[in-house]
Design a protein around this nucleic acid. Structure first.
Lengths: 136, 136
DNA sequence: GCTTAATGTTTACAAACGTAATCGTTCCGC
DNA sequence: GCGGAACGATTACGTTTGTAAACATTAAGC
């Protein structure tokens, strides 16, 4: 490409492009262990999702384009490792949900989860502990 | 269609198809007030999202197909109203997020939001109140 | 009665996504 | 040195989503 930084941003500046659900599965593998080769990633996810190696390669390429992962050469092939931190991703997605569906406030989300009976006793206990931490 | 219940489910049985982000904006309008005509929905959302009436009509059709809303004839036109309850939708999406990103446990989500400083004092207070309720 | 405005239906089209096959190169084993 | 395996890059193709225009029908005004 002759005129570098064409556009479509997601560059170092603009907010990172969203990671799709399939791409997320690949990210997970890399968050657990990295760097990995494409084959190694496939070894981690292809069984569970019933994917072919080709699919994983496509997803890796797209993630590189989105700058969610980076490559480092290792001989004739690449090793892939996350650029986007897991915590940042989770935080971003959580905020998105809270902003989009609950007016940016977390309390209604919890009320909703409670209503859905999606909160286990363990969850409640942990949250209580966290609350104490935060209010300190 | 000659052979009713063709497929593509989302029928009365299979889990409801996902509602996209644009579609959600339409649902919001209908959750706030319903039934509404297409024009009325447009009056609610077209300014904010910079949409044309045509776009709203498309989204309404798709939502009808997905059985998220239903129509009732009103003379020569339709009135639209939600079939999917707001609470159910919010609950479903919340669970999806918790399942997909946090292994189905709400506590890590909470921890994450805290880390992202996405919890206001008001949130904390409300959640505390909720917790007390739930543990009763 | 005829034009027109409103409304649902159909069709359109580009971008993103899911899923992959194919192509071109290069290294490794024989 | 050569055939195949491994790998990244390119191309492919159907579906969903975002966004809308075109079309058909009909009710309503003049």
């Amino acid at each position: 490409m002759t005129e570098g930084a064409k556009a479509r941003d997601s560059g170092a500046d603009g907010k990172p492009e969203r990671i799709s659900e399939a791409e997320y599965a690949v990210m997970e593998a890399l968050w657990i262990r990295s760097p990995l080769t494409a084959s190694e990633v496939c070894a981690e996810v292809c069984q569970q999702r019933d994917w072919s190696l080709a699919t994983v390669k496509t997803l890796l390429s797209r993630l590189v384009t989105k700058q969610a992962i980076a490559t480092e050469p290792d001989g004739r092939r690449f090793l892939y490792r996350p650029v986007l931190a897991r915590t940042d991703y989770l935080g971003g997605e959580s905020r998105r949900l809270v902003d989009r569906l609950f007016g940016g406030r977390a309390a209604p989300l919890f009320a909703n989860l409670a209503e859905q009976e999606a909160l286990t006793d363990a969850d409640l206990a942990e949250i209580e502990t966290l609350l104490k931490e935060l209010r300190k």
